[in-house]
Simulated assay, not measured.
Amino acid sequence: MIQYLYPLIGAVVTVLLDWAIYTHLSAFLRVGFPSTPIAIYREIAGSWLPRLRTAVVAITGIAAGLSFTFKLGGLWLAAVALFAVAHTLLYVILYKVAGRN
Rank of each mutant, 00 (worst) to 15 (best):
I9N: 00
W76P: 04
L17R: 06
G32I: 11
Y22M: 04
R51A: 06
R42A: 09
W48G: 06
V92W: 12
T23S: 14
G73I: 11
V57T: 02
A55Q: 12
I40R: 12
I40H: 13
A58Q: 05
T60F: 00
V13M: 10
R51P: 05
I44W: 00
F68E: 01
H24K: 09
I38C: 11
I44G: 02
L82H: 08
I9C: 03
A64G: 00
I59N: 10
L75I: 03
S47V: 10
L5G: 03
L77G: 14
V80T: 14
V56M: 12
K71C: 08
W19T: 09
Y6K: 04
E43L: 07
A78R: 02
A20E: 12
A27K: 14
Y22V: 05
I93K: 03
V92H: 12
S67F: 02
F33D: 10
A81C: 15
L75Q: 01
W76E: 08
V56S: 11
L82C: 14
V80P: 03
W48I: 13
A20C: 11
A45C: 15
S26P: 06
E43P: 05
V80N: 13
L90R: 05
I44A: 02
A64V: 04
L29H: 08
V80R: 08
T69Q: 15
I38T: 12
S26C: 13
A86E: 10
I59C: 14
A20M: 14
